[in-house]
Write a protein that binds this DNA or RNA. Sequence first.
DNA 1: CGGTTGTTTGAACTGATTCAATCTGTGTGG
DNA 2: CCACACAGATTGAATCAGTTCAAACAACCG
Lengths: 234, 234
Amino acid sequence: MSRRPQSAASGVDLREKLIAAGLDPNLAKMLDEMPAKFVHSEPRKPFREEGANRDEVMFVRSGLLCKYKSDSSGRRQIVALRFPGEGILPRDGRADYGIQAILRSEVKVGRAQDFGPIVDANPSLQRFFWKLIQRNEAIGYEWLVNCGRRDSTARVAHLLCETQLRMHSGQSRLTNPFTQQQIADITGQTSVNVNRVFADLERQGLIKRRGREIQIPDPAEFRRVANFQPSYLR
Amino acid sequence: MSRRPQSAASGVDLREKLIAAGLDPNLAKMLDEMPAKFVHSEPRKPFREEGANRDEVMFVRSGLLCKYKSDSSGRRQIVALRFPGEGILPRDGRADYGIQAILRSEVKVGRAQDFGPIVDANPSLQRFFWKLIQRNEAIGYEWLVNCGRRDSTARVAHLLCETQLRMHSGQSRLTNPFTQQQIADITGQTSVNVNRVFADLERQGLIKRRGREIQIPDPAEFRRVANFQPSYLR
DNA sequence: CGGTTGTTTGAACTGATTCAATCTGTGTGG
DNA sequence: CCACACAGATTGAATCAGTTCAAACAACCG
């Protein structure tokens, strides 16, 4: 939690994640040197509340974060994910969503007033974040299609395909980072039904499970079932 | 369709819409003077296709546009709306969504290469678009909650509340711009069910209809049913 | 008038929810 | 090493919200 411009080991680590996400090495260095603190976030513990001010930049160094909202009856919807190397940009005013860890995560947290000037001064950094925003927009649109227009099997399968790509796993295996309740919160279902979908997928031979480890014998067929077209992830 | 820097009557019109959307008058003038053409778009006619390049900025002067995606089985999902004064920013590369008019619309279409430099040169214009993007993000998140976590009645009612605000109607009436099929495409249902929801809402006295004209006798109660909290629209 | 688009209604069906109970795996402390 | 607690996964039965298919009706427009 100590404020430090850069910690040798961990800083390099995040920089590499950012570069892997498409950022120019020089710009990655700038971001890396921005004053910030590294914070740990635990699953099931609140990290940032709905309705709080969100004058921070965050970059996920390891783990997995989600943004979520709740409707009046307390039903929770996860509206976005942030994998390592991805970030959450500052808002002015209150954010309408909360942030929570899905996996134990290390997060680099900087202040908006430090972040803004760096971006303003570097048009190419601006362009980088512009693209990131567009990618997040495209993912959001795809999630809407998922929730609105696909059956429960395709929804779960689609999420798995997207997760696989964003975690940079191979096409034929995946370490599922989610509980079934979380998959339900992402895909707009109940955990009970998610469980049945998993059982179905396995019965059809589309996946094999060993705990959180998932094998996908026929990736092409799986993507067909999921109705997954990876182009929206760039 | 003619290319012209500014047309006296129509230009002023759009500028006012942009100012109403929160843009500084001087900046509105700059955007207004950007080389661009005014294009008309008709409902049910394709305007911009899915998968096409999208190196254009667009501002809606009048009417109503939607962004949509289709899943493999041709089921359509509307993922965003653009009311007058709102815009669609350029993407680099192909867009994964199509654009279509809901109402007959006049759209100002500029080229990305004209738009980019103007924004780059004006930090306050940048900040304006930054906020716009955040608003659109917040709306997208709210739509996800809508599709994923609310019942069909609340979904339709919520859309009507949002539409009312974005059209700047009063709280107790609304000219519904959508067909029931379009509401279904936004809220992830079938048009048959949307029709039943409307009948229900009317039977419960929450709305009164005369064609596309909707009266809302008790706006507070209607918002409660819709689970509508307008803060996300700022 | 005829054609087109959109709305309304009915009946049968089905996918998903709800509620409740049980089972499994993992970590903790004695 | 066992006992216990706890989070998560799994299963069943009853119910219900929303879909599907089909048909009729209304409004609009050239």
